[in-house]
Amino acid sequence: MSGIVVISAAVEGIVDEAVIRRLFSYMNLELGSVYGKNGKPQLHRSIKGYNNAARFSPWLVLVDLDQDFDCAPLLREEWLPEPGSYMCFRVAVREVEAWLLADYERIASFLRLSRTKVPTDPETLSDPKNTIVNLARQSRRRDIREDMVPRPGSGRAIGPAYSSRLIEFVTSYWRPHVARRHSDSLNRTISCLENLMRRWKARGNCQ
């Protein structure tokens, strides 16, 4: 079938991959291979390659701002001052978990806690991942606490099945059309992908 545009992507980890898969299905876009998934340093090392590839085909690269810079433009400047023609390079403020918190009704019901406990301004949080772990700590469900909260002595920031729980949430409950209203960086990512599609189609090169 002609007219289908496949977008390649590169992300930091498996939760981010689930997020963009959900986002693409919401936007009715076709996702190609997903690269990276081995942490931020690896993504940084490979960014030039992804950008080269984005001269010929559409790409999305999604990275967390974390505490590395004060704001997303500074990270963009440092990582990718000259993005390729079909590159959509996006920064989640401050982590992709903020996008999930932005659908606060659903995250509250998924974590089995009162909606009032979920912060309504996710982009102002300094460590959204830690916010999710702390919310899970207050969950009424023991299985959620055991999966998502790290054991004392584990030396880790997240519990043993944190990622698979979040992937479950993203795949089955998260609503990008609600979350985009409360997260500017998510909203910009959606607009950027729409722009990318327009640019690519205008090139008259749809295969």
């Binding site: 980890g13 081995n38 942490g39 299985d143 055991e146 999966d147 790290p150 054991r151 002595g153 584990s154 030396g155 880790r156 920031a157 997240i158 519990g159 043993p160 099945a161 944190y162 990622s163 698979s164």
Partner: peptide, 29 residues
Amino acid sequence: ARIQRRSKRQIIVSTHSPDLLRDEGIGLD
């Protein structure tokens, strides 16, 4: 981890796999 939450059984694994050890939920202990 999810099997263990239900069954509580102990699982002792030998591995050489960086892919397996990349999981952020693995406790240092």
